[in-house]
């Protein structure tokens, strides 16, 4: 393939990755923004979403679309409930102390990951996509015979990948509407601004925290249900999304929604594009180092304003 079509293909792959990453990172960012804690087990809720998607889809059977829709409805809710329980039984009891929360969520990470290994097993399993048409993509070029259109070999995507991008955008729009237009969104934002004041105004902060923690986990699980027909469900799959979400949240400045989306697009796209052209390991080394340095020298993120 020539460079141009190759780049377009990489961009499309990157966009799918970016869409899923945006949802996952938004979950992590929401939890950090409102509760001021880092959920190290975030990637495991993603894994949980994928594994549950397989379990639900297998149980439902019939047309793949039935199982997929069922998974889309059930998996995020189950993940959210598990997260809310974890919040109430563990995080609440350590009083959301930042360091204790990190240690406790590392513990949760192992518990969930190993529980998946025990009950789901070490295999990687695929979930069938609800629909999956191969779409060849035309390429335009100014050649000897003037303007030409042709279909380069290998330049294609699938209808399902386009669906993932569209679905992610829809969910993001829904999330933004939830945060800005509804009462519960207002309550979450008020809690984010000032926990003590929120308490004085009669906001049940503890229940808001459980809700936020559940919502964050639910977003990660939802992202995983979307991606699992393209990748596969595996008990160790939580690692990369966690790291990438960390990167996004750090780059964007902790806790800002708009920054998170921009950074997810940037990281997701560049991750896709870079790994098509370069050694993925080298790209990851450089990206990780770069993010560490951002946190060292610009802790407010690349988009955030310096706090006074």
């Amino acid at each position: 393939m020539e460079f141009g079509p190759h780049l377009l293909l990489a961009t499309l792959e990157g966009a799918v990755g970016a869409a899923v990453l945006a949802l996952t990172a938004l979950g992590l960012s929401l939890v950090f923004g409102v509760m001021r804690v880092v959920n190290v087990a975030h990637g495991e809720f993603y894994m949980l979403g994928a594994v549950l998607a397989w379990v639900v889809a297998t149980a439902v059977g019939g047309h793949p679309a039935l199982g997929f829709v069922a998974a889309l409805l059930i998996a995020p809710v189950v993940a959210a409930i598990i997260a809310a329980i974890a919040d109430l039984t563990v995080l609440k009891r350590v009083d959301y102390d930042p360091e204790a929360t990190i240690v406790a969520t590392i513990g949760l990470l192992y518990i969930m990951q190993q529980a998946a290994l025990m009950w789901y097993g070490p295999e990687a399993r695929a979930v069938e996509p609800p629909f999956n048409h191969r779409l060849a993509i035309p390429w335009f070029e100014w050649g000897e015979n003037g303007f030409e259109m042709y279909y380069p070999w290998g330049l294609s995507t699938t209808s399902y990948k386009l669906f993932v991008i569209a679905a992610a955008l829809l969910i993001l729009a829904g999330f933004l509407a939830l945060m800005t237009k509804t009462k519960i969104g207002l309550v979450m934002r008020a809690t984010q601004l000032d926990r003590d004041t929120a308490t004085t105004f009669g906001i049940p902060v503890e229940r808001v925290y459980a809700l936020v923690f559940g919502l964050g986990a639910g977003l990660a699980a939802l992202a995983a249900v979307l991606i699992v027909p393209i990748t596969q469900a595996h008990y160790l799959m939580g690692h990369d999304p966690l790291l990438l979400s960390f990167i996004v949240v750090i780059i964007s400045g902790l806790g800002s929604v708009r920054g998170t989306l921009v950074a997810a697009l940037l990281i997701g796209m560049s991750d896709g594009i870079i790994s098509v052209f370069f050694s993925p390991t080298l790209a990851k080394i450089l990206a990780t180092l770069l993010v560490a340095l951002v946190l060292v020298f610009r802790p407010q993120g690349l988009y955030g304003k310096k706090p006074a």
């Binding site: 350590v94 590392i106 513990g107 949760l108 192992y110 518990i111 190993q114």
Partner: peptide, 14 residues
């Protein structure tokens, strides 16, 4: 799944 122990001990300690 012996690493489960690691997770449990971490949570119980905190």
């Amino acid at each position: 799944a012996y690493l489960m122990i690691v997770g449990l001990v971490l949570v119980l300690l905190t």
